[in-house]
Design a binder for these strands. Structure first.
Length: 566
RNA sequence: GCAUCCAUAGCUUAGCUGGAUAGAGCAUCGGUUUGCGGUACCGAAGGUCUCAGGUUCGAAUCCUGAUGGGUGUACCA
């Protein structure tokens, strides 16, 4: 349930009854525990427009606050309204949620479409760490939108077009002619280097490569066949990575750059018709207001650029897919580019005016010393190697504990390693650069995936030990139960917030808070010990179970799994 | 040069619809246990929120300027 909206509605009707016409201002969590659970600060800002003092306004409004959700209200300081939530009401809300498969979260019934463009690897090379953040963040947002009932269209805008492909397919052809298998393609990085070396040293090969670029673009079927073979192999590499990462991108989500090729001449045509084009140095450009650097949609030699492709993609997504919201999960360095294409797409009418176009920008991944993440010799780190290392390191951290079966150990190590990797990324504000630190992400201490997975496993252990059916009611008694209960009800508020601002770190922050509250509850409130009466036991078990379900659901949105035993 | 983003504790950071004593984690120091998983919990210490102005009853938050840093800057993507 949306706890805050509920409280806000109560305040709104109180304002109405007090005949105060106020803009909506949301309640916030109380800053200190003496101030209750929530506080409304609107009285102070209303004071000026109403011409009276804020304490009087607050007192007046508080007279009209009447709801069984609220235990008491106090006026404090210059005009804060402090609000305490009633335990009976809280208990009944929690009991409703425990009976709901969706944890009481309402879903969007209009089935609105949201496009999430993420990952977008280049087919010429293997995926490297530079693709990690886009892939993880994009997948999380897609999961969230889907969970909230929206129709999510994942789009993997792979880079499968451009001059380097001439070189690559020419080299592929050569290998084929020499009767070798495609083994070379198993290591795409290596393949790329070999092709490049040949291109630089062998003039006739270089010529063939250049001819092939022209041929592919001209639709030559032989060259396109080779190209397709190359792309298929390269894409298979990506799928291996997605599979290991537990990311839900599939072949069906691929909508390659090249698929927009046919639209490009028409895009430029339309831009010309609309009078947006200026020819500068032979290139077709669009100059944005107050901007010196233009966006080039067609080169002086007639070729198209990625801006043109992005415009075509925008048009496709708005007009064919009918997306209401389009999110581009792309490195912050491209913000200028997106600002430009978004502006042009609206100006040219490629995209409906009410469609939300968002660049979900993120910062660079750094190593512990704060420099861009590289291998020891300065090369790019292959993503698949990074994932394997995460799993190996995870195995080290858990295998010392107790002997697990090999299969179980493998599975657990994967869940923990990949979970740690994702969580570390998602738990920081995506816009800042992110410091990659193995020790930190695989620690049980602090805001990590492992802490949450541990809390989850601990609850499962209790439920196993209890080994019975959970029949009863949650009945909130203590302060810590009150806090835990409120946190559980707040889940939807948080999801809604992340929906709005596309900031997954708000969700991780919430989950950490929830897990911490549970640990406190666990210390203070014995569940299975002797002397606990049946009703209290059931209430606490149900609270624990609901906490576990919430953690599991939250992590699931982040693309992170849980295990029953660690 | 121009554009744009950023600056919070030793480190990593939360907080950005202006609100009460700026909130965490790591590291440091101290404590809790006849224990439902102690890989836990509790506590202490640690801050001129880069600096200087301004708006306001009230500013880490909004505005202006300065300093330091990141990134981008027309026929690559």
């Amino acid at each position: 349930m949306k706890l805050k909206s509920t409280i806000n509605n109560i305040i709104s009707s109180a304002l109405q009854e007090a005949s105060i016409n106020a803009p909506t201002q949301s309640v916030t969590n109380a800053t200190r525990k003496e101030f209750g659970d929530f506080q409304y600060n609107g009285a102070m800002s209303l004071a000026k427009s109403l011409g009276s003092n804020p304490r009087e306004i607050a007192t007046n409004v508080s007279k009209y606050i009447h709801s069984n959700a609220i235990e008491k209200v106090e006026i404090a300081g210059p005009g804060f309204i402090n609000i305490w939530i009633d335990n009976n009401w809280l208990s009944s809300q929690l009991n409703d949620i425990t009976k709901d498969k969706n944890l009481g979260i309402s879903v969007n019934k209009k089935n609105e479409k949201i496009v999430v463009d993420y990952s977008g690897p280049n087919m010429a090379k293997e995926m490297h760490v530079g693709h990690l953040r886009s892939t993880i963040i994009g997948d999380t947002l897609s999961n969230l939108f889907g969970f909230l009932g929206y129709d999510v269209i994942r789009q993997n805008h792979i880079g499968d077009w451009g001059t380097q492909f001439g070189m690559l397919i020419a080299y592929l052809e050569e290998i084929q002619n020499e009767g070798k298998s495609y083994d070379e393609l198993k290591d795409l990085e290596h393949f790329y280097k070999l092709a490049k070396a040949k291109f630089d040293s062998d003039a006739s090969f270089a010529n063939t490569a250049r001819e092939y670029v022209v041929k592919i673009q001209g639709g030559d079927s032989y060259c396109l066949g080779l190209w397709q073979k190359f792309i298929d192999t390269s894409l298979a590499h990506c799928e291996e990575v997605y599979d290991k990462l537990g990311v839900k991108l599939t072949k069906n989500d691929v909508r390659a750059e090249s698929s927009y090729n046919d639209m490009l001449p028409q895009i430029v045509q339309e831009l010309e018709t609309k009078g947006l084009i200026t020819i500068s140095d032979g290139a077709k450009c669009i100059f944005l207001p107050n901007s010196e650097v233009p966006i080039i949609v067609q080169k002086s030699d007639g070729g198209y650029l990625y801006a043109t492709t992005d415009l075509a993609a925008l048009k496709y997504r708005s007009q064919i897919i009918s997306a209401k919201r389009i999110c581009y999960v792309v490195d912050a360095r491209q913000s200028e580019h997106f600002r430009q294409v978004f502006w042009v797409s609206k100006e040219a009418g490629f995209v409906e005016t009410d469609t939300s176009l968002e660049h979900i920008a993120f910062g660079t991944m750094m190593d512990r010393s704060g420099k861009p993440f590289k291998t020891r010799d300065g090369g790019t780190v292959k993503l698949i190697d990074l994932l394997d290392e995460a799993i190996v390191r995870a195995k080290d951290t858990i295998s010392s504990k107790e002997s697990l079966d090999n299969d179980v150990l493998e599975h657990t190590a994967k869940v923990i390693g990949i979970g740690a990797l994702k969580y570390a990324d998602l738990s920081v504000n995506r816009e800042s650069n992110y410091i990659f630190d193995w020790d930190k992400m695989l620690s049980f201490d602090g805001n990590t995936a492992l802490y949450m997975q541990y809390a989850y496993a601990r609850i499962q252990s209790i439920l196993r030990r209890f080994d019975g059916e959970l029949i009863g009611e949650i009945n909130i008694q203590s302060d810590i139960e009150h806090k835990l209960g409120l946190a559980l009800l707040e889940f939807e508020d948080i999801l809604s917030k992340v929906y709005d601002d596309a900031m997954p770190n708000h969700l991780t922050g919430y989950l950490y808070e929830l897990a911490t509250l549970f640990m406190q509850f666990y210390e203070l409130s014995p569940i299975l010990k002797d002397g606990i009466d049946h009703e209290t036991k059931m209430s606490r078990l149900l609270l624990a179970d609901l906490t576990a379900k919430t953690i599991k659901q939250g992590l699931s949105i982040l693309g992170i799994e849980v295990v029953d035993k660690l």
